[in-house]
Design a protein around this nucleic acid. Structure first.
Lengths: 205, 205
DNA sequence: TACAATTAATCAATCGATTGATTAATTGTA
DNA sequence: TACAATTAATCAATCGATTGATTAATTGTA
C-alpha cells in the first residue's frame, strides 16, 4: 500500500520530468529530488533508469485499447464510429499530453529499440482500430475510396501538432497553450470540430 | 576555405547526431569523433555545445522563407498556391527530415528558451504564408469558410507524422521508411496526393 | 525477530570545457 | 623577394562537475 504509493509517486514525477527534458535530460537525481525520495529508491523499485522509463510507459498502456474496442463492437454507423474514435483519442491526448509527447519523442529517436518495440506494438493496435473503421465505411459504400493509412496520419498528425508544439500553436491560435483550462475548454472542442468537418468533406460520399 | 569546410563537416555530423540522439544524448565527444576532428575544435569554432546546436539551426533557416514568398507573389489561383505550398514543404521535410525531427523535438521540450524563440520566429513566418493563402481563398470565395489555423495544423501534422514516426508508418504503410529511396519515390508522392485530395474536399466550394 | 524500506556515502565513468603547446598559413615589411 | 611577425588551426592532456549505480548501515513494521 505505502509501497505502491511511493512507486506511483515516483512514476508520476518521472513521467513529467522525462517528457519535459527527454530521457537523457532527466537525471535520476532530479527525478528522486522531485519525487521527494532517496535516489537509491529508483533502482530499488525499478532496477535501473531504463527500468523506470519502461514502467512509465507500461503503466499508461493498460486499459486504453479495450475502451477503443468498445466503439467498433457497438451498432454505430461508420461515420459515428470514426467521430467517436477521434473524440476519444482527442480527449486522451489532451488529458495525457505530457505522456504522449514523451511517446512521440521516444518514437522519433530509435535509440532504445526494445522500448520502441513496446510503444509501436501498443500504438499499432489502437491505430488499426481507426483504420478498420475507415476501411469498413469504404466497403459499405458510405465513405469515399480515400487512402485509409494517410487519413489516419492526418487525424493523429493534426492532434499531435496542435497539442505538442505548444509554442507554435500558442502564437498561431493566439492563445496560451500552456494553460490547461484554455486547451480543454477552447482548443480541444476546436480540434474536434475541425476534424469532424475535415473528415466529413473527405470521407462522406 | 578549408576553415569553412571543417565547420560545415562538423555541422553536418552534429545535425545528424543531435537529431538521432537528442541534445543531451549527443555528447561533444561523440560529435567530434564522428566528424573526425579534435573535440576542442567544437568550442573553438562554436564557443560551446549550445553554440554548435544553434549554428545547426541557423544554417538551415537561411533562404527557405524567400523561396516560399515567391509562391504568393506569382499570379496563381489560391488553389494552385496552396498545392504548391504543400508540395514545396513536403519536398523540404522529406529531404531534411533529420533536421525537421530535431526541430520539432526542440519545440516540444521548452528547455532552452532562446533556442525555442529562434525556431518559433522562423517557423511562424513560413506557416503564416500558408495561412494567408487559405484566408485569401476564403475572402475570394473560392474556398469554404474553414478554420485556417487548424487546416495548417492538419497539413504540417500529416507530413510530420508520416515522415518522423518512421517506426509507426513503416508498419502502418507496410514499407521501409528508413530506406530514403522508398520515402522519396513512394511515400512522398503518396503524401502529396493524399493532401491534395484532402484539401480539395475540405477547401473547394 | 525477520525482512522490507530507506538512507547517506561512495564508486567508476562520462560529461562539457579549458589549458598550454605546436603546427600551418597568412600578413607585413625592409 | 626574403624573412620576421602574426594569426588561425589543431592537438593531447586535464579540469571540475555530473551521471547512473551500488554499497553498507539504519530504520520501520508485521
Amino acid at each position: 500500500m505505502i509501497k505502491e504509493d511511493k512507486k506511483e509517486i515516483i512514476l508520476n514525477h518521472a513521467e513529467r520530468l522525462f517528457s519535459e527534458n527527454g530521457y537523457d535530460g532527466a537525471s535520476t537525481r532530479a527525478i528522486a529530488k522531485d519525487a521527494g525520495v532517496n535516489m537509491a529508491m529508483l533502482n530499488y523499485y525499478f532496477g535501473s533508469k531504463e527500468g523506470l522509463y519502461k514502467a512509465v510507459f507500461v503503466r499508461k498502456f493498460s486499459g486504453f485499447h479495450e475502451s477503443l474496442l468498445q466503439i467498433i463492437s457497438c451498432p454505430f454507423s461508420s461515420w459515428e464510429k470514426i467521430t467517436r474514435y477521434v473524440d476519444i483519442y482527442a480527449d486522451r491526448i489532451v488529458k495525457h499530453n505530457c505522456f504522449h509527447r514523451l511517446m512521440t519523442y521516444e518514437l522519433s529517436i530509435q535509440q532504445r529499440s526494445d522500448m520502441t518495440n513496446i510503444i509501436v506494438d501498443h500504438l499499432l493496435k489502437n491505430i488499426n482500430i481507426g483504420k478498420s473503421i475507415i476501411e469498413e465505411g469504404i466497403k459499405e459504400g458510405v465513405f469515399r475510396k480515400v487512402d485509409p493509412e494517410m487519413t489516419i496520419a492526418t487525424i493523429f498528425g493534426s492532434m499531435y501538432y496542435v497539442v505538442h508544439l505548444k509554442n507554435i500553436t500558442s502564437a498561431l491560435l493566439d492563445v496560451d497553450m500552456h494553460n490547461p483550462e484554455v486547451v480543454i475548454n477552447d482548443i480541444k472542442p476546436r480540434i474536434k470540430k475541425h476534424l469532424a468537418a475535415l473528415l466529413e468533406a473527405h470521407l462522406k460520399v
